[in-house]
Nucleic acid binder design. Structure first.
Lengths: 339, 339
DNA sequence: ACTGGCACTCGGTCCGACGGAGTGCCAGTA
DNA sequence: TACTGGCACTCCGTCGGACCGAGTGCCAGT
């Protein structure tokens, strides 16, 4: 049904439309790409492509623009991911290397992604679940208050304050610190939750209440893994959408502020090293049906820590964007592995 | 030169224009507000106000709109801050009370501010300088690596990794922890910097290098107070600007991503309990000359910890916005004082 | 000091004409 | 059979003219 030339025509249409943002007609197409046939022939091919649902006309007597299905075919079959230039790679590498801590890595990554792709960048903070407990610190704040600090293998820090019913001795705090670390250090978050249950029993009666309170808080913290954080940047790049702000841009901007939505959006693309591209209506949110999402996991080779990606108009330059997202994910993984 | 009625007219013009976003003419004005005089009289007053530079006409034979100077006069002399309703206060109070840690307080505050004012909200994280050291934790990560965690009285946590040249013993780490806390606990950030200088001398020769490295890192962290963080939210509220996204909205959106700019913008409004309003060209940044910034410090009564505020179009509802900003700053101060 | 009236300006909108880009189809050709 | 050239047709975007209405400034009158 679709011979090679028709696919060539589709590819040309996508590339032209992405470059100009204007419906592309048969003549322009023949002029710009050397297809070796006449406009009339191209028109026949276009009619076939439209029949199959890959392109459409905004109005009669206008050129064609790709449909979501057209972009999908283009991404799957007609394009190859475009690697970054050496200069870009160098810039990324040095910029990321300057980060001082985990937060800084994430902030820099967002900035970088937004800048390189010229789209809106989204980076999820490394998840707790898959990381391990590196250290638990217990600090006395006041006679009746204790601060818990949980440090993970990814360098993430969680803090919680625990109110004690009775007076808290330094010795008890030291004891708590020792036992908690003994029980948990090196464990995965998920395992840690079960191990924790038995800890209060190790303490003499009079200290059980505090131990129990501490354990409860830690469990909450671990479960509160749900509080996955996200950083967004480059919203100014939303320009390229339409000219009607209220109709075209605002819903997207609103969706971007709903981090819960973004988490679900990214959360479904967890395979590390695999690029996920969701085009237009393939997105599970109506507000984002005019956008495409390119995302990938990052982290160690075997399991990803979290996800990052970009949101842009469906008429984006997929090969370049995919290349940038993939490259940056790799660099971030590398930086994280080192620290 | 400007009698009471002229000021009434100015007030009416500002209120009307803020409500409708359309140039307001003499007839409409008389209809909507009962000024007790005829349109013709109002026209004379308007001519005088225009002469003085408080209002202007977009085109001949169009109504008048306020100039920056007009808004300034309105804010200074013609309006009173509008307090929130009881329901709003209650909502704020309960929403903020649900915060689990400092980061959460800031995130919730941004959301709240954006929602209540329907503008873009900006909240600066509490500054280090004015807070005190609560605890310093030293953790061994690997034989050659040590993690420093600095906990401040405002609940903020800073972390840094220190590379050691030689092997690090547990005893040494304990020693470091003890001495650092002894030297610094309860001190202000600014004092802490000077106190730190003498610490390495307390250690035997073989341990000096590590101690020195740790101290250096801590000093950097304290100085790195410059890395003041900021949270921004409610960008979708940028709608109300103009209809030309590229010209009207984009520069503002870009400025909002430059946290350095925002920091300077807020940084100049440090007096707690005092509202600062910067209108249009009064802002030190060309990109923000179509916007007004309403900000105030928050924190303890005598000295502020940081600043929060909103950015909106110059034609905003100043009385309500100012009321909301002031109220939220107070509630946040209260929450922070409790924890 | 205020008001009513009047001539004037000017932006926004509606309408019809027109040009251009693009299409579909068909008959012709290799 | 597969491609091409040509032709009639559609339809969007733009441009210019006419018109309406909102608003103004000014002036004479109360």
């Amino acid at each position: 049904m679709l011979d090679d030339r028709k696919l060539d025509v589709l590819r040309a249409i996508v590339e032209d439309y992405v470059a100009t943002h204007e419906p592309v007609g048969s003549k322009t197409l023949v002029d710009r790409h050397n297809l070796g046939v006449s406009p009339a022939t191209v028109r026949n091919d276009m009619a076939a492509l439209e029949e199959e649902g890959y392109i459409t006309q905004p109005h009669t007597s206008a050129g064609r623009i790709p449909t979501d299905a057209g972009y999908r075919l283009f991404v799957d079959k007609l394009s190859t991911v475009k690697p970054l230039t050496a200069a870009e790679k160098r810039a990324i590498s040095t910029f990321l290397a300057g980060a001082v801590d985990l937060d800084d890595v994430v902030r820099r990554t967002v900035r970088l992604l937004a800048q390189v792709t010229r789209q809106v960048a989204i980076v999820q903070y490394p998840t707790l679940t898959r990381s391990t407990v590196r250290h638990i610190e217990v600090v006395t704040l006041s006679p009746h208050r204790v601060l818990l600090v949980l440090i993970t293998s990814t360098g993430r820090i969680e803090q919680r304050i625990v109110e004690a019913s009775g007076e808290v001795s330094e010795q008890l705090v030291g004891d708590l610190r020792a036992r908690l670390n003994e029980a948990l250090a090196g464990q995965r978050m998920s395992e840690a939750a079960t191990t924790l249950a038995g800890v209060p029993d190790l303490f003499p009666h009079e200290h059980r209440p505090l131990a129990a309170a501490v354990v409860t808080t830690l469990l909450e913290t671990l479960a509160n893994n749900g509080e996955q954080r996200i950083a967004v940047g480059g919203a100014a790049n939303l320009t390229r959408y339409g000219d009607d702000f209220e109709r075209d841009v605002k819903p997207v901007l609103e969706a971007l502020e709903e981090h819960v939505i973004l988490l679900r959006l990214l959360g479904e693309a967890t395979h590390p090293q695999t690029l996920t591209v969701r085009i237009g209506h393939e997105n599970p949110y109506e507000e984002l049906s005019t956008t495409s999402v390119v995302s990938t996991g990052y982290g160690s080779k075997t399991e990803s820590l979290a996800t990052l990606g970009i949101v842009g108009p469906t008429h984006m330059d997929y090969p370049s964007t995919m290349g940038a997202v993939r490259a940056i994910a790799r660099y971030v993984s590398q930086i994280l592995a080192e620290s």
